[in-house]
């Protein structure tokens, strides 16, 4: 580990291979953001982020970009949860994810949880830029602290744009040093897991989802555009995942 932190960049490009499948002409990543192609499912290419070391630590800068071009279908997951830890380098760690999805392309972005360990300071941005005819399933889960542990500081901003127009732009800030009230009755109220599931489908433009309450702390809501959001707050990571999986299943059952 260096005093300036680690820099890691990963890049994925998915392209229709012309035979009904998806090729990965670019699959670049190493160290904490090593990438592996796994077995494809139908016309979809599958990629796993396999962190070769834990991270990000203080001062680290990670970036990952995935670009899905017209007609391609890409599924990205991760082998394990991402653990934000304190580091020897000064300052916050950054993890920037940029996702581009073209018309008639589909991205499933389903990484494992991000765990904010005590003493860590991580700033995450996830920015999805979609063409009007693109499809997306994006899941983000933040877990505040390992079991029984105080969380670190975590700031996570999620932006989803469709045809240049932002349909979702929201930032969650929590942990020591976050603006006041983050764990109060307007914020997390003692819950330790929070998640977002964004689903973008062109057909939502004509048939938006109906708002639906899955429990007192979980709602499926139509965004201002052809997109739906499941926003969930749960006591722990396991229950959060169950809520998000159930929501996605109910959305899939819908069409």
């Amino acid at each position: 580990m260096t005093a300036t932190g680690v820099r890691a960049d990963a890049r994925i490009v998915a392209r229709a291979d012309g035979r009904g499948g998806t090729a990965l002409p670019v699959l670049d990543g190493d160290g904490p953001l090593a990438l592996r192609r796994t077995r494809s499912a139908g016309c979809e290419a599958r990629v796993m982020v396999v962190g070769a070391m834990s991270g990000p630590l203080g001062g680290d800068r990670f970036s990952l970009t995935a670009s899905v071009t017209e007609g391609a279908r890409l599924h990205v997951g991760s082998a394990a949860a991402t653990l934000a830890l304190p580091g020897q380098a000064k300052g916050e760690a950054r993890y920037d994810v940029r996702l581009d999805v073209a018309d008639d392309a589909e991205l499933h972005w389903l990484p494992e949880q991000l765990i904010s360990a005590r003493g860590s300071d991580l700033h995450v941005t996830t920015r999805a830029e979609l063409a009007a005819g693109a499809r997306l399933v994006l899941r983000e889960e933040q877990v505040l602290g390992r079991a029984g542990e105080e969380p670190g500081r975590l700031t996570s901003r999620l932006t989803v744009r469709i045809a240049g127009r932002a349909v979702l732009d929201q930032e969650l800030a929590c942990g020591p040093g976050a603006p006041g009230g983050w764990d109060g009755p307007a914020g997390l109220a003692g819950h330790r897991a929070v998640g977002q599931l964004v689903v973008v489908r062109p057909e939502f433009a004509g048939h938006p989802v109906e708002p639906q309450l899955l429990d007192e702390c979980t709602a499926l809501i139509p965004l201002a555009g052809p997109a739906a959001l499941v926003s969930a707050v749960a006591p722990d990571a396991l229950r959060l995942r169950r809520l998000l999986d159930a929501s996605l299943a109910s959305l899939d059952g819908r069409t």
């Binding site: 901003r157 932006t159 969650l172 997390l188 702390c217 709602a219 809501i221 926003s231 969930a232 707050v233």
Partner: peptide
Amino acid sequence: VDALPAASGPLLEVGAEW
């Protein structure tokens, strides 16, 4: 407008739907 803050309270949003 991306320069505008986007701070959100999860329970404010879900609570409003409830």
